[in-house]
């Protein structure tokens, strides 16, 4: 853990392009799990030196780095909990391969909890 954090900082500081810059947005109440902040501009490094990042990796990165409380309100098993929609560049992730969706630099990923109120 400490080692990967060091690597992460090193890549970032050295300004190499191994990090992927993404915009993550949380809505429908999910923002409460990450300090009530809705929009997060983040740099994520692909796992184990891989040259691409997929949604599965991003989810575990989010869980470790952004979710501050009640992780069970965000994830169930290795995917999002029922009632959460995931949108990659304004498109339902079901249409792009769910957990296997490949991410690219500057992608916008939205996590939104479905509302029931009225």
């Amino acid at each position: 853990m400490a080692r990967s954090l060091q690597c992460f900082q090193w890549f970032w500081v050295s300004g190499k392009t191994l990090n992927m810059q993404l915009t993550l947005e949380f809505g429908g109440g999910l923002e409460l799990l990450c300090d009530s902040k809705k929009i997060h501009s983040v740099n994520v490094e692909p796992q184990n030196g891989a040259d691409k990042l997929i949604m599965k990796d991003l989810l575990s990165w989010v869980r470790t780095n952004l979710i501050k409380e009640r992780p069970e309100m965000f994830m169930k098993g290795d995917t999002v909990r029922p009632g959460v929609l995931v949108l990659v560049n304004d498109c339902d992730w079901e249409l792009s391969g769910q957990l296997n969706t490949s991410l690219e630099e500057k992608d916008v990923v939205v996590f939104i909890s479905t509302l029931h109120g009225g």
Partner: peptide, 27 residues
């Protein structure tokens, strides 16, 4: 879209969490 219902703890109510009146108005 939602084959499985969300956990009850994820279902907030206007009576508990509040709602700005004009928001349901717009929807």
């Amino acid at each position: 879209l939602f084959p499985t219902p969300p956990p009850t703890t994820a279902c907030q109510r206007c009576a508990d969490s509040g709602v700005l009146g004009v928001v349901p108005g717009i929807i």
